[in-house]
Structure formats: C-alpha cells, structure tokens
Design a binder for these strands. Sequence first.
RNA 1: GGGCGCGUAGCUCAGCGGGAGAGCACUGCCUUCACACGGCAGGGGUCGCUGGUUCAAUCCCAGCCGCGCCCACCA
Length: 886
Amino acid sequence: MSELPKTFDPAAIEARWYAHWEENGLFRPERDEAEPFTIVNPPPNVTGKLHIGHALDNTLQDILIRHQRLLGKDALWVVGTDHAGIATQMVVERQLNEKQQKRTDFTREQFVEKVWEWKEESGGTITQQLRRLGCSMDWANERFTMDEGFTKAVTKVFVDLYNDGLIYRDKRLVNWDPGLKTAISDLEVENSEINGHFWHFSYPLEDGSGAISVATTRPETMLADMAVAVHPSDERYADVVGKKVKLPITGRLVPVITDEHADPELGSGAVKITPGHDFNDFDVGKRAGIAPADMLNMLDANAAVCQTADGLIPDELVGMDRFDARKRVVEMIDEAGLLEQVEDRVIVTPYGDRSNVVIEPWLTDQWYVDAETLAQGPIKAVRDGTIKIVPKSWEKTFFNWMENIQPWCVSRQLWWGHRIPVWYGDDGQVYVAADEAEAQAMAGEDVALMQDGDVLDTWFSSGLWPFATLGWPDETDDLKRHYPNSVLISGFDILFFWDARMMMQGMHFMGEVPWHTLYLHGLVRAADGQKMSKSKGNTVDPLGLIDTYGADALRFFMAAMESQGRDIKMDEKRVEGYRNFATKLWNAARFCQANGIGASETLEAPSVQLPINRWIIAEVTKTVRAVDRAFEKLRFDRAASEVYQFVWHTFCDWYLELTKPVSINDRRGQIDSESKTTVGWALDQILVMLHPFMPFVTEELWSKMGDRHHYPLITARWPMERAKEYRDSNAEVRWVIRLVKMIRSVRAELNIPASDRPVLQAFGPADLAKRRLNRFSDTICRMARIDKIRIFDQDEPRPDLTAEFWLDDNEFHIPLEGVIDVPAEKTRLTKSLVAAEKEASKLDKRLSNPQFVEKAKPEAVEKARTDHAEKMAEVERLKAALERLG
RNA sequence: GGGCGCGUAGCUCAGCGGGAGAGCACUGCCUUCACACGGCAGGGGUCGCUGGUUCAAUCCCAGCCGCGCCCACCA
C-alpha cells in the first residue's frame, strides 16, 4: 500500500496503466474454459482520427467487455481498421497533389505501393487514440480489411456469390461520382435541396403541325433525349402519339410515346425522355424497347459533354462541363425562340457523400449483388427475434429498407481496394476464380487473360468482419467459439451500410446470424443540438476532453448520457462533474488510507455485527443487483447512475461519516476494526463496479490500497456472489439517517449556528425509538451537532420556547432558549402545516370518491388511507406546536 | 409522400397509470482533522396544447403546435 497523492491527476496514471494492461496481455487473459463473450469493433477507417462519435461507440463497447471480463467470461473484443477505399485513396492523392503529382503519374502498382507505405507510417493514429480512451481491445490480433486473411475471405465470398448467381454484371444506370470518377452505391448518395429552375421548352413536331411543351430541371440532358412521353390516357395528346418531334439543337427526331410515368397533372403532361441520364427515363426507355446498349450517352466520366453515338451534338458543346453546357443549351433554345418559361424551383439534388460533387446517373457496366435474395435471411431473423434490435423502434426502419432493397453496386473504379477476382479472356469469356492461375486453368493455356480493373466497395469486405476476423474461411477454433458474436454496438448511421450487410453476408456464408443483439446508439451532437461537422467547425475533440478531465470522466459522461434511442448533446460541464466524481472517489480512498483501511482480503462480505456495517453490506448488494439489471438491459445510463448515487451519496456522504469514531470534542479516534474491514470491502466492491466505466482511476486505487488475490483490477472478479444481507439493520440505520437529516434541517431553518450544540429532547419515544436513540446516541450527536440527547416521559412538560418535530410518531424538541428564533420556527411550522393540509385534503378527496374505493386496486386504497391518517395526525401536531409558540 | 424520434425545474436529461426526479446552475450557512473538483440545508416545474379512455394520466389513445432525423424517381 503506497500513499496516494493529495490530488488526483488522470494524466499521471492513464498511460502507465494502459501500457501495463496491454504488455501483460490482460485484455485477453487465457480463459479457455470460460464461456465466450465476443464483440467486434466497427473497424475505423485507417485514415481516421478519433472523433466524439468514436468515443461514444467505443466507450460503450469497452464498458460491456470490461464488465464481461470481470464476470469471468472469455471476453474477446476484436479490433482492426478498415482500408476505406475512397477515403484512403483520397488522402494519398491529396499528398501527391501537394508535391505537384497525381495518381496517374504512376502505374497502378506504384500507386498502391504508396498507399501501403502511407498506411504503415500514418495509419495507426486512431488505434493509438483508442488506447487513450482506455479501450481494452485484443490488439495482439489486430486485423486490417486488406490483410492476407481478409483478402482470401473476400475473394472466396465474391467467387461463391458469383457461382450462386448472386453477383452479376449488368449495364444500367449507376450513381456516378464525376469527382472521384467511380460508381458509388445508393447509400453513398446524399440528397439535398438546392434552389434551381424548371425550364419549359417547346419541342416542334416534325410535321410542322405544332409543338409539345416539356419541362425539365436538367436542360443539358436534352442533348440525349430519345423520346417524349405522355400518359396513355391523356387525351390532349392522343393525336400526336406516334408522331415525331424534332429536337432543338441536335435536330434528332424522336417519337412521342405513351408511358404511365408521365403525369398529366404535372407541367404540360408531356415529359422528355433521356434514358441514358435519368433513372426514371431509363425504365421508360426499356419499356419502350430501347436496349441499354442503344441508349444515348452524352457525358464522359468527368461529366463533360461528349458526342452521342448519332453524332448530332454541335461541336461547340462537346467538351463543355455539364453546368456550362446547361447554360449554353438554355441560351441556344432561347435563341431558337423555343424557351417558354423559367420557373424557380427547389430541386432535390444528389451529392456524393465523400466528394460532395453532384452525382450523375451514368450508363456503365458494373458488378451487382442480388441484395434482395440475401436480405431474406436477415428479415426473418429480426422478425422472429433471433436478432434483437435495441432499441426496438429501429426495427421498422430496418424492415422498410430491407424489404425495398435494390441491387447493390459493388464495383468501384478505384485503385485502392480488393481487386475483383474476374478475368476476361480474349475468347470473350469471363472467368471468376480465386486467382489468376486458377482462372488460366479454367480458360486453358491459349487464352490471354485480363483482370477486371475495378475494386470492391469497402463495405463488401467489412461486411465479413464478424467472421473473417476469426479466421474464416478456415474452420478455426476462434471461429467456432466466437461466432455468432454476442452483441454488436454501432451508431444507427451505419445500420444499412454495415450492420445489414454483416447480417446478409454472415447468414449466407456462416448459416447463422452474426450476433443476437444489435444495439444502436445515437449521435453525439454539439451543445446547441446541431450535428457536429468539420465544415461547421463545431466539433469537440475527445482527446482535448481527455486532456482536460481525464479519460474516465469522458467515459462516464458517455455512459451516463446513453439512454436508449436518443442523441447525446455535448455538455462539457457534465464531463467536468464526472471528473469531480473521480476526485471524490480518490479522496474517499485517501481517507481510508489515512485510517489504516486497506484492500479487502475476501471477495465475500465480511461477517459483521455493527448495524452500520450490516447496513452498508446490504446497500452494496442492492447496488450490485441494480447495476446487473441495468447491464442486462443495456441501460448504460442506469448502470452509471446507480454506481454514482451509491458512491457519492451512500458511501461517502453517510457510510464513511457514520464510521468516524470521534465525538465532536475528540480530536483523534480510531475506527474500530470491524468497520475498517467493512469499509475496505465496500470500497473494493465500488472499484470493481466502477471499473468498466472508469478503468484508470479504479485500477490505480485498486493497486494503491494494498496487496490482493486478484490483481490487477481489470481481471478481478465482479461482485456476483450475493453478499449477506443483514436486513435487520437497514431499518434502524435508515431511521438514524432520517433523524440526523431532520435535525440538520430544523437547525438550518432556525438559523442555529453550526457552533451551537443544543440538546435534543425526545418525549415519550416508543421502545424501538428509545433503543435506537441510546444505541446511536454518539453518532446522532456528532452528525447533527447535538450536545446530548435527553429522553422524557410522555407527560413531562415541554419547554416553553422550542423547535418541535416528529420522526414517525416520535416527538422531538430542540429548546430554543439562548438561540431563540421564534418567528423562524413559526414560519417553518406553518410551511409544514400548509403542505400537510394540502396533502391531507388531496387524499381526503380521493377517499371520499366511492368510485375510487370501489374500483381502485386494494393496495392503492389501503395506502391512501394510511397516508391520509398520517397526514391528519401531522396536521394536528403542527397546529398544537404552533399554538404552544403563541 | 412514407417512417421514426423528441418537446418534464434556468440548462442537459431520467421517469412513463396511483409520492414529480438527477447532474449542472441558483440561494443561505460552513476555511468541521478525505475531498471547496468539498460539506450541510434550501428555492425552483399548470411534465408543449386540446380532447378522449380510466376511480385515477406527465405516463395510454386521438388530434394539433413546435423541433429533429431517415427513406422516397414527381420530370
């Protein structure tokens, strides 16, 4: 046992303990016999820096895993990073740009090599930052979504899905990101509303018999128009259907067709059809018999105008950026006298979530996963409860998405990522194989092969995280033991991106759900409720909070604020409050040390006689149970607040005070040895219970309080053994506490100075109360600053000037002679009287309602009667007391 | 257009059918021998609004008002 410094300095202990845990393999102690408990960490981007959302997500996971480890489980927290295709490629490209270089100055191999170099040098930032938070992950087996094992898993998944017909190549419109020059999935598109226009054009009929008015928010795409559609039932256009219009600018002749898509209510009821550049029009075009291969395309990969297959676009427009082309097309149509009207309009516009560039529907060949088929298993699993989503309210959202899921575009035109294991032969065949040798074997020696140039969506690989990290496709022991995982904790923002994909891939390849519980937490918002974002500049750096308040305080804040289904607003004052809480605990431990209290020698509660010790043992047990219950329900906030209340308001405020032996005049006393043992035991229980939330300060105190069987704390034992209860002492200690509080309250309201030590008089106390007064006399006197307690018979005369109060049916007086403040006492009594009368009349009203007596639960009626009687008695007493004061 | 969530003390949030709570902030007292990052005692709320169900509603139901989020091809 070494002496604790007077002040608690989190920074002084955090790094030391973390290193100790990690170096000694304590995050994953050997527990082959124990029941496994497994969670996998959502792999942060290798380019990532710890933001406040990570802090929340990982704190919750660490609390769970530390709790389970303390329960003795074989607790595994899988950790690693994600290669994050787009994000990482962007980082490295940006670095090249700074050196006036660009990606295409290098060969693909050279560039990928540079990314690996970057990863080795700078990719570990976030993993170091997770350590500062105190996360007890299995770093010894850290994974990367592009490490060798993962690559093997990803390849197998692609090949198997292809062979099962669940991956296919298709030419259709994709969300094309012209900034990154790659396809992206639906989920990576963010729609936002911008102010735009609605242009009305007049398209002349070929035969000169008139014109049709069409309206569009994207005028430039008219360069690739292939039809004008009207609703089949729209009689206004019945006689022009089948005719052709001659498009302005290109002069292309396109038919007027009918299609349900055209809405007669909207605009003129006629709509231009551009199958190559609009998702709706693509479908209309297909219905009209236009094959995707024949659809006109007028944009290149940069979203600049290119010549269409029919060569009708004027040269001046070719090569023009889409937005410039928009202006020019409108001008040209206006010059031709065919611009009818320009309306202002709010346009829902798609943006790439990474590039923040307007997404272009673009006709390309891409690889698609048949998500609809894969979604069936997960839908059923959530439906029948095999997977429980917490909070349950997310289930509806989950079903809504899964039941309307679209084919998942998984190919990306990037260099960094998992290469698609597909080879095209010069024989025109496609070979899908684990590697080139295998593909060559399939194709035969004479065929020249060329691998598909694309890589896979990052989420395609991270979806394998729950099993590929455990060794799959090999049948490892870890895989058998730890799949399915126990629970997944993730932000709701990646429910579709990641959680749903893990379900789909996990169930398809493992035949079992990836985890039985999916816990979704909210966002951490700025203090004003806004979403934090770098662009708004309102982010809060968790590392800064750790520097200022300590990791424990930040963690406790996260836990205390995590109530299910709600976002967390950042509140730095509250973090500060939990730093104070850590300090409070620290000082309580110092008090213990100063009084010769050290580590407990037993896990079991000691056998004790003194009421206060029996009481605190019961209180500890009660708290352990409440915390256990909260953990079972994943109620982090409740667990945190139970421990907080117990530590501060039960242990520190009452128990430690009750154990102090000194009477008020006695400077130095000794705490009795039974109490010392019990205090030591109770403090130990606190340290264990608090450890999942505040690992650093608890570990430090655990080590400083003395030698132990279970060392260090991280692998100690959760107080699961039911402590002895000693219910017998609870009532009397609670009674004493109530009495002390009451005396203090009376003193404060009557302005009795702290230095005054009045006498407490009890008149005719019941036997039980008399016994308690005698037994706890010293304690009551010390804690309520009373000189002595005097007990009188019921019929003894009361003092003339007195403050009067009751505890249950026992009458107490504090004579006011010498410290007279009669008006204050009158005020106090009157206040109580008004409150009691109000209560009594409320209860009286309820009881005099026959409906209530008849229909309410008997317990409720009984309780109302008892309460009413008590209140009435109180009213009588208060009236009498007031009368006595005159 | 569909779906979800929120509106409880000055602030941040628990509670969700029979007692309105916590932390911070606020007021008074206390340099009491663990802790002023502290102790003791307090003040403060028509639980968004309107109806309904019920003996009883902050809590259940309906509608409304306000705020936020997600999904969706109205050109």
